[in-house]
Amino acid sequence: MVKYILKRLGVAFLVALTVSMITFSLIYVSGDPAVALAGEAASNEEIEHIRKSYGYDRPIPVQYMDWLGRALQGDLGRSHYLKEDISHVILTRLPNTLILAGCAIAFALTLSIPLGVAAAIRPNSLIDRFALTLAVVGQALPSFWFALIMMFFLGIQLRWLPISRVETWQGFIMPAIALGYYVTPGVMRLTRAGMLEVLQSDYIRTAKAKGLRPLTVLFKHALRNAIIPVVSLAAVQFGFMLGGSIVIESIFAINGLGFLAWETIQRGDLPMMQAIVLVLSLFYILITFLADMLNAFLDPRIRVT
């Protein structure tokens, strides 16, 4: 178990390091970051000033090591546009995004796992067909369009839910659905396929032959094993949601990291852009690592060797 954790930690660390390099080099995609930062109307003196103050005149490896060293201490630099500490801005915006993504994944899992289990218990039944239809339709709905449609019907026509810039829990309902529904088809299909496979396994027959109650067979013996791949998928999808929140947050004007990213990109605020990509990637790495740990807990074949 210790070996497993260390191995995963090592990989996570290496991935994080690589991601930081890619993220850092992002600002050089356009060529000269000082020119990009200064804007089109800037004079040569202004560009030189920015180059000096941001240290873009130093060799790139030195810049990277400096940036990484500060980032490790929690200092992500200053925003050129907002004139604020980037870490501070990100920390104030992060909670909204985490709440949104958390609600979204909660919505997705509470919808898709029971549906997938029900579909697997009775293949080709009405509920199975319903689940399949939902999956096929869900996979084809563009999330931003779905968000606007929901806004139109639930917010404008029926006036059931607030449509934007609301920090109460009702304000998170539509965004969470818009962000979460896209995950449901995948999770549902995986749950269904896993349950179908497990329910036909020999150990389920053993459990039935012991005379265990159907619910015990289903939840203790079947779901526990079928859920293991779902955990990994849910973690990956949660990571995607953090990135995908950019679309939903900009539609519902939720003051989170996604919305910040959108504003930042439009302003061309390079250091802030770097920082956001880095933070979201690190979150993804953290979440998938936690999912690996949860799976090790669920599956003794990983845990006990």
Partner: peptide, 10 residues
């Protein structure tokens, strides 16, 4: 681990 939409946008 890199967010697609964000990196693409950037």
């Amino acid at each position: 681990s890199m967010p697609v939409v964000l990196v693409a946008l950037a």
